[in-house]
Amino acid sequence: MIEVRGITKTYKTGDVLFEALKGIDFSIKDGEFVAIMGPSGSGKSTLMHILGALDNPTSGTYFLDGKNVSTLSDDELADIRKDKIGFVFQSFNLLPRTTVLRNVMLPLVYSGIDAGEREAKARKSLLLAGLDEGHFHNLSNQLSGGQIQRVAIARALVNEPSLILADEPTGNLDSKTSEIVLGTFQRLNKELGRTIVLITHEQDIAEHADRILFIKDGKLIEDRTTHLKRIVNQK
């Protein structure tokens, strides 16, 4: 459950103040698949950083699972990210020259899960993300873009977070692979009831979600359910 109330974010560069977010309110219920859409410079990245507990808002409150995240210290934010949030990035950010399994196990290292249990959990979430077992011991740089992004999704899932935050996850992929990755998100949302927030600047990508929040110039200008949801048929 996400509740955002009156969030603002102001950056200061020298003497120049820049208001990236000018008071945003919305809430997202558990199990929703929401796209946050806006052109570049609209403030959607800033919003994503706040939702992802990477940054504190200048004012306003952000409740994640009933906990006020907006005023926490660096280390407390790290704990929130560890326990409640799974990130999927545009540039994948896998560890190079490291096996798929170890990449997926990485979040478990920081959450203090016993080494024995890690591999089983990693395998489970890799299968959920739709990667063949044959690739589990490949090095991350031996995979295709679509496979890499599934590994990244598996890594986001492995800690069973309350929220999966995908920042332009298809930005570096071709349209066919993008469809597959978006299909993976839809399946995780529908079959496992995962809450997913997808950040994108493309309308047709956003239309894969159930609900779209339009951000422009730091303000929420529209909040609507998707008129015509694009559904990817999974084999």
């Binding site: 660096d74 790290a78 990210r81 560890k82 990130f87 540039s91 950010n93 920081y110 959450s111 890594r155």
Partner: peptide
């Protein structure tokens, strides 16, 4: 740097 960023994003603290 990006690896450090990723580690922090998935919950690594400064001291880690």
């Amino acid at each position: 740097t990006r690896e450090i960023g990723l580690r922090k994003a998935i919950g690594a603290k400064k001291k880690d």
